[in-house]
Write a protein that binds this DNA or RNA. Structure first.
Length: 532
RNA sequence: GGCGGCAUGGCCAAGUGGUUAAGGCGACGGUCUGCAAAAUCGUUAUCCCCGGUUCGACUCCGGGUGCCGCCUCCA
């Protein structure tokens, strides 16, 4: 793509603390590295968001004409993995492989595309050893008894990403954790850790050992994107120490003007206003959520808030015995504050409700149903021979959508741009009153084709609408234990009653359906049902 | 304690000094309907407080207040 035709895209850069115009190293190309998971357990929703945010960025950059090389690593050498392996009596690598596969499955469920390269630490040990040696040669690292530490006082930019200064950090160092006395400075961090007996190890000039936590990203990004590349992303919490240390390592080895040109960090997911943590009640794995709600609705919900903001999941748990809403203490203890019944917490977990996700799911259904009707209309109506302008909301939809996306990937604003078009199209679908046949057809046609572009960018609304709607219905029916045959049967009876204008009987049947949690919609072509 | 972020209608949430301050949910009213539902249309905010810069600030600066995060493994 010609540089002159590239659109202006701004993104927030953590290093400078403001939005910057994206100027890639090579016009039209974009190299992007994101910190992927450490695979010691099932992914949680925070992992999902951290993968989703760059996924949408990459999709959008590609839509805008960039050739993107997207690298997301898998950290498969780590203390927690080793610990788990020894607990289970299997090699650490087996643990890592297992959870890497599960991660892949969870991400695929959420329609998150595979990165172009998904490097693993275990496959880059030689590059890591080289990098550590370079740092030692440059006096930026030192060896102690088989461990290698980064010598922070010799890297003058330390703290520039997280805006901390070394003196202040030294003052508080050691107040929260014990400092290894062999380190020259409490702030020095491990590049290489000597293997203890029984631990997995790789050969190195300093003996058997394994990489420290931060070095892998420096080594793997260089390997796959070069010493300098465009965007480096990850969760907010990685700013310090992880990314700060990456900078020290990579710029220490390759020069001050190298490494990531832009730093992008996504916000956290909270449950009931609290950061997700492993304490019961607000820690949810990706698949716990996707078992309860359609994965695409989950994806949509995550995109309704700007990626740098925190995203709160409201959590509702009803007491199984009295039906009252349980407060946070109740959720944690399992004891209902209203009727004092004790319920095992694992039972409570399975009937958690997330009102935000329900709303998102309803919205998805609205959009897919609009798409479905639009397609049906286009399949039966005749394409007009003349050209006429489409209605204003549909006309402006894609342009407004893209403008929001160019402004720091503002998915929330972008999503808002769909509403007017959706309203207009549903209006036209309902009736052609007041507009010409050409306007009606062309507007609906344009909407369907522009929505396909939106779907490519967001990774939402791209499925076959009828298929999606059917899946949703079946899934909900199964979760509610609804007998669909019974519903259909009642619907037939009611249609007969309505044909006889027996309104009393029709309304009685409708009440019966309401009891089942089912609503009916009567239309000119008969009646259909949906969930209330 | 240090550093960073946030504060917009009943709730959620965009907002790039001058815009009628998006959009969603909810509520209320209309159209449609046998009645409903769905769909659709309309109504529903002056942006935490105090100063400052400016012709003009929700938007920039300073000071409060209140939340939250990072500083230890964490997305």
């Amino acid at each position: 793509m010609n540089a002159a035709t590239l659109p202006t895209i701004s993104l927030f850069d953590t290093m400078t603390g403001r939005k910057q115009e994206l100027q890639t190293l090579e016009p039209g190309h974009c190299g992007m590295y994101c910190c992927g998971p450490t695979v010691y357990g099932l992914s949680h929703l925070g992992n999902a968001r951290a993968a989703l945010v760059p996924d949408v960025m990459v999709r959008f950059l590609r839509h805008q004409g960039y050739e993107v090389k997207y690298v997301r690593n898998i950290t498969d050498i780590d203390d927690k993995i080793i610990k788990l392996g020894s607990e289970e009596g299997i090699p650490a690598q087996e643990v890592a492989d297992r959870y890497a596969a599960e991660y892949k499955r969870d991400m695929a469920d959420l329609n998150i595309l595979d990165p172009d390269v998904e490097p693993r630490v275990s496959e880059h040990v030689p590059q890591i050893v080289d990098l550590v040696q370079t740092l030692i040669d440059k006096d930026l690292a030192y060896e102690v008894e088989g461990d290698v530490y980064y010598r922070i006082k010799n890297f003058k930019g330390y703290g520039k990403l997280s805006k901390r200064n070394i003196e202040e950090m030294l003052e508080s160092a050691g107040s929260r954790i014990d400092v290894d006395q062999r380190k020259e400075s409490p702030l020095d961090f491990a590049l290489w850790k000597a293997a203890k007996p029984g631990e997995p190890g790789w050969d190195s000039p300093w003996g058997q050992g394994r990489p420290g936590w931060h070095i892998e990203c420096s080594a793997m990004s260089s390997t796959h994107l070069g010493d300098s590349f465009d965007i480096h992303g990850g969760g907010r919490d990685l700013i310090f120490p992880h990314h700060e240390n990456e900078i020290a390592q990579s710029q220490g080895a390759h020069g001050e003007d190298t490494y990531a040109r832009y730093w992008s960090h996504n916000g956290f997911i909270d449950f009931d206003g609290e950061k997700m943590s492993k304490s019961l009640g607000n820690f949810f794995t990706t698949r716990e959520i996707t078992a309860l709600y359609d994965p695409e609705a989950v994806r949509y919900f995550l995109l309704t808030v700007h990626y740098r903001s925190g995203l709160n999941f409201e959590v509702e748990v009803k007491c199984p015995s009295c039906g009252a809403l349980m407060d946070k203490e109740g959720q944690e203890s399992g004891r209902c504050p209203t009727c004092e019944t004790e319920t095992p917490t694992d039972v409570l977990r399975k009937q958690v409700r997330f009102p935000g996700l329900e709303e998102a799911d309803d919205r998805m259904a609205y959009i897919y149903s609009t798409l479905s009707q639009a397609r049906r209309f286009l399949a039966t109506a005749k394409k007009p021979g003349n050209e006429e302008p489409v209605t204003s909301g549909v006309e402006g939809m894609l342009m407004t959508f893209v403008a929001h996306m160019r402004n720091d990937f503002n998915t929330s604003g972008a999503l808002g741009a769909l509403s007017k078009a959706l309203g207009e199209v549903n209006g036209l679908l309902d009736s052609g009153k007041g507009v010409s046949k050409a306007v009606r057809y062309l507007t609906i046609e344009r909407f369907v084709s522009d929505m396909a572009e939106v779907a490519d960018i967001l990774g939402c609304f791209g499925q076959d609408p009828d298929q999606w709607l059917a899946n949703r219905r079946d899934g909900k029916a199964a979760r509610m234990g609804l007998d669909i045959a019974k519903v259909e049967n009642l619907l037939v009876k009611r249609t007969t009653a309505r044909g006889d204008k027996d309104w009393e009987a029709a309304d009685r049947i409708r009440d019966e359906l309401t009891e089942l949690g089912v609503g009916v919609q009567d239309g000119p072509d008969g009646s259909v049902w949906s969930f209330l």
